[in-house]
Computed example of a mutant assay.
Amino acid sequence: MGGQEEAGAPSAGKKQQKSSKEVYFCVLPDKYEPLIEEEREETEEERKKRKEEKKNKRKKRYKKYRKNVGKALSFSWRCLLAGLQSMASTYSTPLSAMATVVTEVDRASSSRA
């Protein structure tokens, strides 16, 4: 088994031999025109306009994030308050009344199923 691994893949200790690559050359036609992009300077107005667009885009994105985070926080807060209220009502009721309430709740939930 060990011999097959060595034959299939070169070991990490050995360096791969350097080899040359074939390079192909071709002659360009006489009508060839290289594509050169014109470098034009950006005016001050264009720069300001681009900055304003960026700023507005960022404002919209942050507004959406704030809205979603606000919804998530308000929902979490409501769930926390509901849990605390149910826990408070559980601790404030006497033990004898609680046994009756728990059995009634179990009957109601089993009749739904």
Rank of each mutant, 00 (worst) to 15 (best):
S111T: 11
E38W: 10
G13Y: 04
E37N: 07
E44N: 02
G83I: 00
R112V: 09
V105G: 14
L73F: 00
A82Y: 02
G8L: 10
T90L: 05
E53W: 09
E22T: 14
T93N: 06
R112K: 02
E33I: 09
Y32K: 06
M1N: 07
A108Q: 05
K49N: 11
R107N: 14
G70I: 05
E41C: 10
A82K: 14
L80D: 03
R112Y: 01
S96K: 13
V69D: 08
M98P: 00
L95N: 04
Y91D: 02
D30G: 09
G70F: 02
C79N: 15
V27D: 08
E46T: 04
A12R: 07
Q17D: 15
K31C: 08
S96N: 01
E46S: 08
S74Q: 02
L35M: 12
S76M: 03
R50D: 01
S76F: 11
K14A: 07
T93S: 08
A12F: 06
D106Y: 03
K31P: 02
G3C: 06
V101S: 13
L28G: 05
A97W: 03
N56M: 10
P34W: 00
K67Q: 09
Y24N: 05
A12W: 01
N56F: 00
E33M: 05
E39L: 01
S19C: 05
R47I: 07
R66M: 00
K59L: 07
A72Q: 06
T103C: 10
K60I: 12
E41I: 09
S19I: 06
R112E: 08
R66G: 06
S96T: 10
P94A: 09
N68W: 01
S96M: 06
E46G: 03
K49R: 15
S110G: 10
K15M: 00
E44M: 04
Q85N: 09
F25A: 05
K54S: 12
R112L: 07
Q16V: 14
T103G: 13
K63H: 05
V69W: 01
T90R: 11
P94T: 13
D30H: 03
K55L: 15
R61Q: 11
K14Y: 04
E46Q: 15
R61N: 05
S109V: 15
K14L: 06
S11G: 04
G2R: 10
L95E: 08
E46P: 00
S19K: 12
G8N: 13
T90P: 04
V69Q: 04
C26I: 01
G3W: 10
V23G: 01
D106F: 10
F75Q: 10
E5M: 12
A82E: 15
S111V: 09
G13F: 06
